[in-house]
Nucleic acid binder design. Structure first.
Lengths: 154, 154
DNA sequence: GCAGTATGGTCAGAATATCTGTCTAAAAAA
DNA sequence: TTTTTTAGACAGATATTCTGACCATACTGC
């Protein structure tokens, strides 16, 4: 009963992605802290990765892109305003709307985060081999285009 | 200014992992809901994936494995007890301690989650090719063993 | 141009998920 | 046996997300 796990049981599918991703997150936020962004939390990334870096974006747009309610996004945007990563400007095209726009510090954060992503990738490439890393990137990019659609009913 | 993005700009390193993982999570919890586990939330997985399926585990052990405080883990364990996935038994080896153990329903959940992971993997294999999926698994498994150690300093 | 509807945003309140700090009792070490 | 460590509980705080109700502006179809 219960197969002898001679050749070490396969890692589960979820863990295959969760482990590197959560390891990366831990590393990234530790580096951000060291590099002058100690007040940035993981949740903030929903904003930073969806905002239009030049013109800024509406909260509603950010919420859609990040897949959350506008109230939740507004909470994150507010907190980034308090921390001086974002500022609000009226949207000239719609008197109801406002644009959340990166401040100088916000742009610096974005650039740093991008650089750190590349740095981590290089670090990993150094450990598994650049060829394997390139192949992994190819496969994951392919996966991104192949993710099965699903609605609550299949 | 700003390179023309002819051959579509590279996906960021974080997104490479985040996208498939979060897609998988959405799919998984939708399936769990359909299959009789509508009350299971993502946070609960910290328990389900770290508990000893036969003998049960102490809260302290679960907390360590999941990388969170014992108070946080106790909160999750309590909620799984309320939902009839776990039960508490005294630890015979230590009068201070208790073991959280899977109930019948808890075991069913665990089995279902495992099956769904395999199902999703097969689904994805069907879309990118079984050979590519196998290669992806190989690479990700390799990555898991190669994740760079890091402490707040370095 | 107006009635009706849709959209951008806010306010209020709740549930969930995590943390820190403090404390008790039991176990382990000195 | 005294001291220290460990397992867990209790209290309270903070963060992250949701739903529901609302207001003001914009858009659509007469």
């Amino acid at each position: 009963m219960d197969e002898i796990d001679g050749p070490a049981r396969q890692i589960t599918f979820g863990a295959l992605f969760r482990e590197p991703y959560s390891h990366y997150l831990g590393w990234l936020y530790a580096r951000l802290q060291e590099r002058g962004f100690p007040d940035i939390r993981v949740a903030h990334s929903a904003v930073v990765r969806t905002i239009d870096a030049e013109k800024g974006s509406r909260v509603t747009t950010l919420a859609e892109r990040a897949g959350m309610t506008k109230q939740s996004m507004a909470y994150l945007v507010d907190s980034l305003i308090d921390l001086d990563y974002l500022e609000i400007v009226p949207d000239p095209k719609d008197k109801r709307a406002k644009l959340a726009r990166l401040t100088r510090r916000g742009r610096k954060l974005m650039a740093t985060a991008a650089a750190l992503g590349a740095e981590y990738e290089a670090l990993l490439a150094g450990r598994i081999g650049a060829d394997k890393m390139a192949e992994l990137r190819r496969l994951l990019t392919r996966v991104a285009t192949a993710l099965p659609d699903w609605k609550p009913g299949e």
